[in-house]
Design a protein around this nucleic acid. Sequence first.
DNA 1: ATAGGCAGTCAAAGATAAAGAGTGCTAAAG
DNA 2: CTTTAGCACTCTTTATCTTTGACTGCCTAT
Lengths: 329, 329
Amino acid sequence: MNNRQTELLKLIVEEYIKTAKPIGSKSLEEKLNCSSATIRNEMSYLEELGYLEKTHTSSGRIPSELGYRYYVDNIMIPKELNGDDMLKLQTIFKNQSLVLSDAIEKSLEIVSELTNYTLIALGSKSLENCLSKVEVIPITETNLVAIIVTDKGYVENRSFTIEDGISPLEVKQTVDLINKHVIGTPLDEVSAKLEFEVKPIIGDNVNHQKKLFDAFCNFINDVTNESNVKMKGRANILKQPEFSDADKIKKIISKFEDKDFISNIKEEDNGVKVYIGSETEFDNDVTIIKTKYNVNGEEGTLAIVGPKRMEYNRAMMLLEYLKENIENL
Amino acid sequence: MNNRQTELLKLIVEEYIKTAKPIGSKSLEEKLNCSSATIRNEMSYLEELGYLEKTHTSSGRIPSELGYRYYVDNIMIPKELNGDDMLKLQTIFKNQSLVLSDAIEKSLEIVSELTNYTLIALGSKSLENCLSKVEVIPITETNLVAIIVTDKGYVENRSFTIEDGISPLEVKQTVDLINKHVIGTPLDEVSAKLEFEVKPIIGDNVNHQKKLFDAFCNFINDVTNESNVKMKGRANILKQPEFSDADKIKKIISKFEDKDFISNIKEEDNGVKVYIGSETEFDNDVTIIKTKYNVNGEEGTLAIVGPKRMEYNRAMMLLEYLKENIENL
DNA sequence: ATAGGCAGTCAAAGATAAAGAGTGCTAAAG
DNA sequence: CTTTAGCACTCTTTATCTTTGACTGCCTAT
């Protein structure tokens, strides 16, 4: 691919990102200093290579998935985040009084508003969390609340019912036993320790202690597995012209509702990564830009979902900025 | 309104609920044992009264908002919940191992699947909750976690940063002071007690104690105000034929994203109430059926959002059943 | 009060036509 | 070998028109 071809692909991608309309050869004559016929020749070459597509036989060209890929990997010149965008986000991150989850939520909202894409954060307890405190508080004869605290300050609670009641003494004995074995243990190893170290001591007799212990094990399991999803701007992405058709809208809204699809968005890489169309394994019509974040005891994924015709540079910079600021909270 | 007119309105509402197509006079000849001309006369009378509408000059009739209202209030004969519907929901409510919030979530999903309407639950701490325990756990020099437990077993936590650190002794003093004044106080009165009983003791000197106290006050305020929203089946309601147009879909999806609109759905009445079109103050194209629920320390609203052309009886029964089962958890 | 009959209205669907944007290909020029 | 001009062709978009069918409203007769 020579210079002019690269330049042509760049122009087409960027113009299409702006206008969402197929680009014809004539409109590029001046920018490339050659005739439309020459451009047509080059276009048909780029189409042969798979970087461009037509929407019908006599239409202008639009970038193919491969075209976007090539643009992002080889052509796009990273530019700093725009000052306005940064300013809008700073109103959130400078506000000290916000709790982490609120700060994430609000910043997702702002980025969605700014870009008209949908923002997603998938968070879960980081496995670096070590259990630092277990408490079980009786509420009534048969109802109890268990609370665990980790060394990163993560707190979870769960209420239990022990049908035929349990005495405060029995509760204390069970909790002491649990504490003795699992304090300081990383969250993801607690289940195994409970199973192999504590369970043998408690034995198989189904008594109050055993019931409480089992309930607690379930609780720990749920905590280590559960993740929370924040999604902002479902309605914003619908403003994009590619989603002006009722069926496409329904398709995308259904996907947003599907937990399996959403949890699949999880990203393991620390950098900002771009997934285009079929690469997303979510929907061929969208691009998803993702990054991993990690902040006191919580780690997760931040993602921007937009049309393939996305402002790649801006979205990547916004996500990068989001990640950095969240990690500094 | 005579018998035949009532019967006519009933037939039109029920047929329209089934088919979503305007009802013509000819299709009702047999059911009413009279000619289409007679039915046309009756129809135009019902239109004059405001119970029916036309979509264009020569179309069949559809029920107006007032028509639905009259149908729900005066014509509809309440029928028991269908056995199949009941069975599907029992799979959730018989499963003892589900936590309240999961049970609500799953049952909303099921009802949405069953009806193709959107289900919403707005929950918040019940004001019957009295504070029964306050704890503050130091995590690092500058980081703390506060935990409150109510007599109903409700637990909330929040982490704080005290920039220049705070000693365990100072923490204990502050927590003891708070405990002394607010244990046993209903959640909604805690803020006032802190302000008028505890604050004067702590005084205005900006020291560590004061900082911790202020952070705790914010925490309590947030707890009493915050509510959580569960929404299931946004995509399902879009299967209804009234939402086959892109603009209408966008409108309704935007509304679902708007927290103010959603929190407005709150219902104070214990019974099952029906709000049609403009009565919803949410969107003129939908009907919302609501009820209030109340279960250990949590109270809230359950709502079904569907088209005005809703299966009123079924939706009402489903909601009633949902409420009862949730309250018995 | 009811019904028959007819004229009139409107939506939906299909057919047709014209305009406009853009391509592919060929042949000539540089 | 590369570039360009030119022309035929294709396809979308938009508008206009027509036909069909489902209704209603109203007048009149029973």
